[in-house]
């Protein structure tokens, strides 16, 4: 915003320089160091890398040791995301229908509450729940439930925000034109919220895919999602294979999320109305 830029005057430079430095030190440096160690020819991940080899990427992308947990993580994340999106979008639309502002506020408070529950406490709770219900095989269901809950606040906040930016008269107009609730949701609200829902889904997928605390507590020994495998590996030694796996996962996340953002932008640009 130009007016904001002008209001900062000469100090604006210092602020932007400091922010640039913070971005470099806090965000860029650790990522660059991690990526660089994944092509070292040594057997330990250590900066600076010595030589250049793609051997570790080859190992990660072919060995069952990495691929099997990867597949499990992707499956769990896909199911969890589908649930989080269905429940989160329905909740956001449902809350927008509430006439009492007190009820809407209470719902928002509750929908964001899972962010405030420490993952480890949720893990302990779900773990005990599994034991008491005698769910030896149902632990995967508990894991999906817990991880879905951890992604739910993000889906809700993103979609609820997009709903408040919709013209409230669109809903009224559809009502006066004879549309029932289902038609309004299907033909008016969901199409307009589409880009936001896609972005929320991808974000939820990445959140669930990366979740490790609940997985550590709920998965039986020998059954691992990728983050659990990586956590266990890191507690032995930092190998270049581990940093290569980290690089691959991060790259996938960035491509997925970056792509969904592009789609969102493109769509929004096309259907822009004043």
């Amino acid at each position: 915003m130009t007016a904001l830029r002008e209001s900062l005057g000469k100090s604006g430079w210092a602020v932007r320089l400091a922010a640039g430095l913070a971005a470099f030190i806090l965000f860029a440096v650790p990522a660059l160091v991690l990526v660089a160690t994944s092509w070292t020819e040594q057997r330990f991940a250590l900066f600076p890398p010595k030589g250049f080899t793609l051997e570790w990427f080859g190992e990660v992308l072919t060995s069952k040791k990495w691929l099997q947990p990867f597949g499990r993580s992707a499956t769990v994340a896909a199911i969890g995301t589908a649930l989080a999106v269905i429940l989160g979008v329905a909740a956001a639309i449902g809350v927008s229908r509430l006439r009492s502002s007190r009820a809407a506020r209470a719902w928002r408070t509750v929908m964001i509450l899972p962010l405030a529950v420490p993952p480890i406490a949720l893990g302990v709770g779900l773990y005990n729940m599994g034991r008491w219900l005698n769910l030896s095989d149902g632990r995967m269901a508990l894991l999906i439930l817990g991880q879905m809950i951890s992604a739910l606040p993000f889906v809700f906040v993103l979609v609820a925000g997009a709903i408040t930016r919709l013209d409230p008269n669109l809903h009224k107009a559809a009502q006066t034109l004879g549309a029932n609730s289902w038609l309004i949701i299907r033909k008016v609200e969901l199409p307009l919220l589409g880009p936001t829902i896609l972005a929320a889904a991808v974000f939820a997928f990445v959140v669930i895919f990366d979740e490790v605390v609940l997985a550590v507590f709920l998965l039986p020994p020998g059954v691992e999602t990728l983050p659990v495998t990586m956590l266990r590996a890191s507690q032995e030694t930092m190998t270049p294979a581990l940093t290569a796996a980290s690089t691959v996962v991060s790259l996938l996340a960035v491509l997925l999320l970056g792509g969904s953002q592009m789609v969102g932008r493109g769509k929004k640009g096309g259907a822009d109305a004043p």
Binding site: F27, A31, L34, A45
Partner: peptide
């Protein structure tokens, strides 16, 4: 920089700091 960092898992980012 902020988005890329946020989209990367907490654990992977912690590995970066470890190194």
């Amino acid at each position: 920089a902020l988005m890329f960092s946020m989209w990367t898992s907490v654990m992977v980012r912690s590995f970066g700091w470890m190194l």
